[in-house]
Simulated scan of single mutants.
Amino acid sequence: MNNRTGAIESVAGNSNFAVNSALSFGYRWFDPERWGHWSFDLDFFGSYMGVGVSGFGMSDHENLGFLGMRGRVGYRVWHDRLEPFIGMIGGSVLANTASGGVDHGAVWGYWFSPTGGVRYYIPNTRWSISLDGFFRFIGGVNGLSGPGVTINEAPHAGLGGRWLYEPVGIVALGYRF
């Protein structure tokens, strides 16, 4: 049963998670003589998140492409091998969705998020591994609409706003040139 219209429809699936791929390229400042154990980094960040669900003649999908910049501040501890960090990330998003076989179109918007995590530097190598988590707030994707449905029609800040949001966890390998 469709809760919005009250009509009885074919069964459709629901996806509660998605795979998110990301690529970043930037610069990290770490000068123990000048800043001690503090490090700073700034990078360009691009990622793609896609979800598709099909069942009983129905198909839903959500495709989001994110481009932005990320800035973080870290503090190296434990023989300069472990680095907890915090920062901010944000930029533009291209969104495309479909539900019930109806394409809602594609539209640009914006996104931002606080970020935090920890990086481990592998001894005697140029490699590091990090765990990074952030909570994306996605707004401004007006225009995604279909019969009787408009997604994120009037986004505004605050708990009562109509933000799309997504929690993201990333495991990353890093290489220092």
Rank of each mutant, 00 (worst) to 15 (best):
N3Q: 02
I8P: 00
V11H: 10
A12I: 07
A12P: 02
G13K: 12
F25N: 02
G26W: 05
Y27N: 06
R28S: 08
D31P: 03
W35L: 02
H37W: 04
W38T: 06
L42V: 14
D43M: 04
S47F: 00
S47V: 00
M49A: 00
S54I: 06
F56L: 05
G57R: 09
E62P: 05
L67D: 06
R70T: 10
R76Y: 11
H79T: 04
H79K: 14
H79S: 12
R81G: 10
L82P: 14
M88Y: 15
V93C: 01
L94Q: 05
L94M: 07
A95D: 05
G105K: 01
G105P: 05
A106Q: 10
S113W: 12
G117Q: 10
Y120Q: 12
Y121N: 05
N124Q: 11
S128A: 12
G139C: 15
G139Q: 14
G148K: 13
V149S: 13
A154I: 02
H156D: 07
L159F: 13
G161P: 14
R162E: 13
R162C: 05
P167T: 12
P167F: 15
V168S: 15
V171P: 01
L173N: 03
G174W: 09
G174Q: 13
Y175G: 03
F177T: 00
F177L: 04
